[in-house]
Amino acid sequence: MKPVKASAKFACLLAATAVLALAGCTKVNPPGQDTASTSTLQQVLQRGTLRVGDCLTFAPFGFYNKDGQPDGYDVDLAKELAKEMGVKLEVVNTTSANRIPNLQTAKVDVVFCNFTRNLERAKEIAFTTPYVVASEALLVKKSSGIQSAKDMANRTIATVKGSTNGDEVRSMGIPVKIQEYDSSEAAILAVKQGQADAMIEDNNFLAYQAKLDPDLVVTNEALVPLEYNAFGVKAGDQVWLNYLNLFLFNINASKQNAELYKKWFGTDPRYPLNPQF
């Protein structure tokens, strides 16, 4: 084999060095890695409109007011978020069933909608830190003398058809009669009219009902493990998730979230957002 001239070797070395330098200067993002330019955050700022998915059939979290406009606790939070971002707000009426699909198909930028964080949902979307905590309690008349589920022996609990809420009391070994109604409104009316001794439901929802009727009160107990509700976002968008978490940190630290809760539910938040383990 003929020896290679020094000049040829040097030329080959320069070419190899150039290739390595080019590779070193070219940044390759790992598959699925989010960047600020492709984040929903940047898209919302460029669009000038924040699209929030909210359930407008579950007062006082979300509902249509007398003027036909979205209103409620979640809507107030959405207004604060849009204000901080300097964009307009578009509230998209959402159901429990289409919360995740609407995120995955980018019909909305974020979902509030009484969204409980759990591991099954976390396989498909991402959640922020919690902004409200829920459990189940009893709605009773103040004059009933009922202070907890232990006082419900041989009494009647009103529930909504298809709900398993009454089973929580039965699982405590308390003999109760379960009376099912077609709607929450019908179950509440049954308590007001004395057809049932209590109604079992989400404690936040019941707090709102007690605010509307001074003759009603909510028992101070947690009949099921606490549920931590958060904002839902499309998976893989860490920039947007970081922004929303900082927004929640700020409104919680400033007590603004607690003030909005009291505005709509008539009481201070019952459970802390950060559990003690």
Rank of each mutant, 00 (worst) to 15 (best):
M1N: 06
K2V: 05
V4C: 06
V4R: 07
V4N: 13
A6F: 14
K9T: 05
C12L: 11
L13H: 15
P31R: 08
T35R: 01
A36N: 00
T38H: 11
S39Y: 06
L41F: 08
Q42I: 10
L45N: 12
G48I: 00
L50P: 00
L50V: 01
V52I: 14
V52Q: 10
G53T: 08
D54G: 13
C55Q: 14
F58H: 14
F61S: 09
F61N: 09
F63R: 06
Y64M: 12
P70A: 13
P70S: 00
G72W: 01
D74H: 09
K79E: 01
K79T: 01
K79V: 00
E80S: 04
A82G: 02
A82R: 03
E84F: 07
G86N: 00
V91S: 00
N93L: 05
N93H: 15
T94C: 07
T95N: 07
N102D: 11
L103H: 04
Q104I: 10
A106G: 12
V108D: 03
V110D: 08
C113A: 14
R117L: 02
L119Y: 06
R121A: 07
A122N: 13
A126Q: 11
P130G: 02
A137F: 14
L138V: 13
S143P: 00
G145R: 11
A149D: 12
M152T: 08
T159K: 02
V160I: 09
K161A: 09
T164M: 10
V169K: 10
R170N: 13
M172N: 05
V176T: 05
V176D: 10
K177P: 01
Q179K: 08
Q179E: 07
A186V: 11
I188D: 13
K192W: 13
K192R: 15
Q193Y: 12
A196Q: 09
A198N: 07
N203K: 10
Y208V: 07
A210C: 03
V224A: 06
V224T: 15
P225Y: 05
L226P: 06
Y228A: 12
A230M: 06
K234W: 15
K234G: 06
K234R: 15
W240L: 05
L241D: 02
L241P: 03
N242M: 03
L248E: 06
N250K: 13
A253W: 09
A253Y: 04
S254C: 14
N257R: 04
K262C: 01
K262M: 02
F265P: 02
P272S: 01
N274S: 14
P275R: 01
P275T: 08
F277M: 12
